[in-house]
Each structure stands twice: as C-alpha cells, then as structure tokens.
Amino acid sequence: MESFIFTVLAVFIFISLLFSIFYSVRSRQMKEPVKKGIIGGKLNISMGAMLVFISAVQLLNSNESTLRIILGAIFLLLGLFNLFAGLRNYSFYRNKEQQHTQS
C-alpha cells in the first residue's frame, strides 16, 4: 500500500513538473503583460502543487528523521505560498483581462 501511495505521488510530481515547464516556456514567450500574468499565475500554481507533493513524499516516508521532517515542512510552506500567490495572481489578471475585453 505504501509503495502505491509513493507511486501516485511520483506521478503527480511528474505531471506538475511538466505543467511547470510548459507554463514557464509560455510565460517567457508572451509579450502582453496581462496574458503573461495569467500564465505566471498558472506557473506558480503548478510549482506550488509540485512542492506540496514533494513535501508529502518527505513527510509520509516511514523512516522519520529530523532532517526529512524539516525539509518536508519547508517544502510544504513554500508550496502553499506558491499556491496562494498563483491563485491570487491568476484571479487578478483574469479579472483585468475581462475588464479589458468589456471596455
């Protein structure tokens, strides 16, 4: 059962890594600031999810060492911060885009 959980987490880490790479490349290609902000928000969300999944692997590992718990907690905090910042930026720029199209 434990190996199944770690396999699922590894798949989620890999998927969020692919999204992070995809949005990073797209963000660098965008010229319009509003669309770049939307893509940047999605990038932060995918990076935050990846860090949360990495922290879950660290915290759920059976040999609980102090270093592993500290690293898991740091990754969890960074991941949650990235998720929050990404959601905030995404909603801000999405509203800005909708206001621009209505004008």
Rank of each mutant, 00 (worst) to 15 (best):
residue 1 M to R: 06
residue 2 E to T: 15
residue 4 F to M: 03
residue 4 F to W: 05
residue 6 F to W: 01
residue 6 F to I: 12
residue 6 F to R: 02
residue 6 F to S: 05
residue 7 T to A: 12
residue 8 V to Q: 00
residue 8 V to C: 03
residue 9 L to V: 03
residue 12 F to E: 04
residue 12 F to W: 02
residue 13 I to R: 10
residue 13 I to Q: 07
residue 13 I to M: 10
residue 14 F to R: 06
residue 14 F to G: 07
residue 14 F to Q: 07
residue 14 F to S: 12
residue 16 S to D: 07
residue 16 S to W: 06
residue 17 L to R: 01
residue 18 L to H: 02
residue 18 L to D: 02
residue 19 F to L: 09
residue 20 S to L: 05
residue 20 S to M: 05
residue 22 F to C: 05
residue 25 V to S: 08
residue 26 R to Y: 02
residue 26 R to H: 04
residue 27 S to N: 01
residue 28 R to Q: 11
residue 29 Q to E: 12
residue 30 M to T: 06
residue 31 K to W: 00
residue 31 K to H: 02
residue 31 K to C: 05
residue 32 E to A: 04
residue 32 E to T: 04
residue 33 P to D: 11
residue 34 V to Q: 00
residue 36 K to M: 06
residue 36 K to T: 00
residue 38 I to N: 11
residue 38 I to E: 11
residue 39 I to K: 01
residue 40 G to E: 14
residue 43 L to D: 10
residue 43 L to N: 07
residue 44 N to T: 11
residue 45 I to R: 13
residue 45 I to M: 15
residue 45 I to G: 07
residue 47 M to G: 14
residue 47 M to V: 14
residue 47 M to Y: 06
residue 48 G to V: 14
residue 52 V to T: 13
residue 55 S to P: 08
residue 55 S to V: 13
residue 55 S to H: 11
residue 55 S to G: 15
residue 55 S to F: 09
residue 56 A to I: 13
residue 56 A to H: 02
residue 56 A to E: 11
residue 56 A to L: 14
residue 56 A to D: 09
residue 58 Q to F: 04
residue 58 Q to G: 06
residue 59 L to M: 12
residue 59 L to T: 09
residue 59 L to Q: 13
residue 60 L to V: 01
residue 60 L to Q: 06
residue 61 N to S: 13
residue 61 N to Y: 13
residue 61 N to M: 08
residue 62 S to H: 10
residue 62 S to T: 12
residue 64 E to K: 11
residue 64 E to N: 12
residue 67 L to M: 07
residue 69 I to E: 08
residue 69 I to S: 08
residue 70 I to K: 07
residue 70 I to V: 09
residue 71 L to N: 12
residue 71 L to Q: 14
residue 72 G to Q: 13
residue 72 G to L: 08
residue 72 G to R: 10
residue 74 I to F: 09
residue 75 F to C: 12
residue 76 L to W: 05
residue 76 L to Y: 03
residue 76 L to D: 05
residue 77 L to Y: 08
residue 78 L to Y: 02
residue 78 L to Q: 03
residue 78 L to K: 03
residue 78 L to A: 11
residue 79 G to C: 00
residue 80 L to K: 07
residue 81 F to C: 08
residue 81 F to M: 13
residue 82 N to G: 12
residue 82 N to P: 06
residue 84 F to P: 06
residue 84 F to L: 15
residue 85 A to S: 13
residue 86 G to Y: 01
residue 87 L to C: 11
residue 87 L to I: 14
residue 88 R to D: 14
residue 88 R to C: 13
residue 88 R to M: 15
residue 90 Y to F: 15
residue 90 Y to H: 14
residue 90 Y to C: 10
residue 91 S to N: 10
residue 93 Y to I: 03
residue 93 Y to L: 09
residue 94 R to A: 10
residue 95 N to F: 07
residue 95 N to V: 12
residue 96 K to H: 11
residue 97 E to S: 04
residue 97 E to C: 00
residue 97 E to G: 00
residue 98 Q to R: 15
residue 99 Q to D: 15
residue 100 H to V: 15
residue 101 T to C: 03
residue 102 Q to D: 15
residue 103 S to R: 09
